[in-house]
Every structure is written in structure tokens, then in C-alpha cells.
Design a protein around this nucleic acid. Sequence first.
RNA 1: GGCGCAUUCGUCUAGCGGCCUAGGACACCUCCCUCUCAAGGAGGAGACCACCGGUUCGAAUCCGGUAUGCGCUACCA
Length: 491
Amino acid sequence: MSKPVRVRYAPSPTGFPHVGNIRTALFNWLFARHHGGSFIVRIEDTDVARTVEGAVEAILDGLRWLGLDWDEGPEVGGNHGPYFQSQRLKRYQEAADRLVAQGNAYRCYCSSERLDQMRAEQVKHKQPPGYDRACRTLTAEECGIREGQGIVPVVRFKVPLTGQTRTNDLIRGEVVFENSTLDDFVLLKSDGYPTYHLANIVDDHEMKVSHVLRAEEWLSSLPRHLLLYQAMGYQPPLFAHLPMILGTDRSKLSKRHGAVSITEYKEMGYLPETMVNFLALLGWSLDDKTEIMSREQLVQGFSLERVSRTAAIFNIEKLNWMNGVYIRTLTIDDFAQRSLPLLDKKLPAQVKRPLSLDYIRQLAPLFQERARTLAEVPELSDFFFVDELEYDAALLVGKKSTRESTLRCLEASRERILKLDRFDKESLEGSLRPLAEELGVKTGELFGALRTATTGRTAAPPLFETMAVLGKDLCLKRIDVALDKLRGMGL
RNA sequence: GGCGCAUUCGUCUAGCGGCCUAGGACACCUCCCUCUCAAGGAGGAGACCACCGGUUCGAAUCCGGUAUGCGCUACCA
């Protein structure tokens, strides 16, 4: 009885894939997969002037990165192509011609100057801005005269002057619009390209789209689309308008709010599985407590009934937490592999390349539970890679310690370490922990001095594991450097 | 200005008439663990459910109005 579920993600290549946009793609994808339907990608490249070079690739890369595979669309084709609107111009022109012939649309010869002026006037007089329908009643003869003057017309839809247009939005329930509040919008531009409104309904119909899941900003356009479906004699799909994603100040998410492009999140070291999970929760929930969900759980649990109606604010703090959770679920090897590109990119230039994946595997466990993003790995671990540590000698001396005491600690440690045959966590700890007592200092004081000496930092992963990875020679060398620094202090 | 949508802790949200003196999560605070930092564990603080009326034995939940926010109002999507 019910038609197969077919949904589409229809981005416009006028910029890079915004997280809000990607969230819409995700919901469409989840809906399609949940119902065993098809997920279609269609490129809405009808705005020639605003098209951005490379945007299509960036959009597709974003989808691929998140694992949102499409059944029909660019690169994979399908039975309802082409999937670039710029390649479907003929269909839109035919539709426009048909609407004109049917009396549902008309050609408009008004100049953009006149339109601008008219709008300015309307705004000035607090009138609702909108086309004044000057060309709506032009006779064929009058049209001919204008054509003769070389004016290239646009095609406008003849909106009914009275009546209401209503439908049942799957998320918002019944929505009603007075036709009298709509103006005669453009269907076909003078350059022969369709506007979103026309292209959208022609394609959704021809591609047999069953459900349109799009952002709430489109809700206001819904009556136009419904009227168009009606005029074309098409059965409209079902609509669901998704809540928007806002910045921290509650305004539409933009560059001001930091990263907005999904590719930026990749570069910042967020995992695709985190992004999928996090974005899914922006406007949807499974129940009152489940938050960490696999792709499969998401697909299984997704439903429009549980999509919220209120706009959500993108909270980077929560994203960071969730990314940390996902990072900790990775295997050591996976974590090491995924960290490699970020390390390569962010470690100081003087660090020898190529980086050793094997070495990274050794230190990976030390950072896996500390990093919230992959980009933090190079920041936290650079002391494992650089030759010379740079730090203030004062850091060697702990708060409750003195220079003399620190010197004794490091000198004694040096002797102990020298004698070690094995240099692993256990032997290190077995040798150094008793040393603190012998020297009559707190373990914290001894370990702290060693930590600074070997890592150049006061906060680092557990000392013995760190030293074990660093290796005996390097540790000794760094302790010597620290000793020199201490001896030079206060001179 | 017009039209539309929305309104529960700072944030993401649960709630679809009695189970709510409103639950979970992030962030925050305290404690535990501990060589530092994290992670982990245990607690805590945090929402007069925007406001005003109405319906009802009973409303965060239903209805109306107001306010506020957001969106649309292009030969952009």
C-alpha cells in the first residue's frame, strides 16, 4: 500500500558543507536506512552566480567521511538522473511552459530596477514586500511588444488570490497559510535556470521522492510548493521540517560561531562516529537517557516522531566530551593510525619525518584516555618527538621542594637508572619508588622532578610508562640536561 | 511591517492529563582513586516547566491571548 521510501539530500554548491546542512543529510540518511528506502543526493546548482568551485567535492567528501552512502546521485548514477539540476534545465523549461499554457503562470518583463524600487517603497510604507503583479494581466499583444524590445522575461507563478493552503507536517502537525499573503514568485529566471521552487517540485516528482525532510527555514515556502504540485497535477510528497541548529547566541549558525563546515571538524580531530552520534542528538532523541549510540542503533531507533520541534544550539563542550568517549573505545592500533596524520601535520617541523607508526603505537595508550580530539595528541605528546626540551628550570623544583633537594633527587635517580638492566614500567617503579623513602622525600617530589626532567612538563602521562617508552638513553640525557639547568640556577 | 514556527536546568534533551515535590547528559562544585594531568567512581548545586487566563476532580502536558526568540518575506538556496 505505501510507496517505497525515497528521500533526498539536495545541497546547493554555494559553499562548504555546513554542520546544519549535514545534519539534514544525516536525518534523511537515517530515515532512508531505517525504512529500507533510498537515499538520493541531488546537487541544486541553479544559482550560477553563487556557485563555489570545489563545493560539490567538499560536500560529497563530507558525506563519505561520515559514512552516509547514497543510492542515487553523483558518481553512482541511478534511474532518475541526471542528479545535477544544471543538467535538467529542459525539464524545468517545459514545466514552466506548461504552467504558462495552463494559465497557472505568466511571463514577467519587469526590470530588476523597478522591482528594487517597488520593494523599497513597500518597506518604507510598512507594506509587506512582494511583487505587485504588474505583468499578471498582460495580453499576448503586450507581451509581444516587450519581447520585441528584447526584454527577456522571467516566468512567475500565478498564486491564487484567495483561499488557504494547508498540510500536515510530519513534525509540526497541521500548518495553514493564507494564499493572499503569498506573492507571485519566480519559477524560471531570465537566464533560463529555474528557481529552487520549480526545480524542487519537478525533481522530487520525477525522482519519486516520498518524503521531504528539510530544515525549518523552508517551512515558509511550503505553500508555494504545495500550490505548484497542485498546478502541475502532481501528488505532493510528505513533508517534515527539521529544527534548525543555532550558534551559542541563538542566531543562525555562521562563521562567527567558529567552525561550521564539517571538513573543519575533521581537521580539528573529531571522529566521524562522534559527529554522526552528536549530530543525530541535535533535534532527535531515542529516549530519556541513551546518548552514546552506534550507527546501527541510530538507524534502528530513528523516527520522525522523536524529532524535536525546537531549534538546538550547537554545544562544542558536549561534542568534546563525546569525542573523548569515542576515542577511548578505539583499539590502540586504530587510535595510533588515526593520530598519525594529525601528528604529522602538527608536530614541529624539526621533528624527523616520516613518523614511525610503531613508535606512535607505543605511546598511544598514554594519550588515548587523555585526548578529547585527535588534534590534542600532538599537543600532549610532542616531548616524545622533539630532541631538545624547552622549559623553565624553575619547573623542576616542586612547590614544596628546594633546588638542593631536587638536585639530590635527580642525581640519585640518575645512578639508579644507570644500573637498571631492564627499562620497563615495573623495574622503573621497583627501583625509584623505594628511592623516595631512602632520600626522605615524598614520592610526589621525586616523581615530579623526574617528570619535568624527562618531559619538560608538570602534567603528563604516568611517569614510569612514559620513561619506558622514552627509553633509557633519552631519559638519562634529559636528566643530565635538567641537572645542568639546576646547577645554573640563581647564578 | 506581514506570514509561519517555537518557548522544560547555562546547553542538549525526557515528558504526549494523575507515575513529576520534573528524569538523563555536557559543563560546574565536592569527595574517592592517585606520582602530575586525565580517565573512572560517588555525591551536590542547578528549571517558580516564558507569562496571563480558560478547560478539568487534577495541566509542563489540552485551548485562547500576550511576550520573547527564530525563520521566510530575492531573477539565493
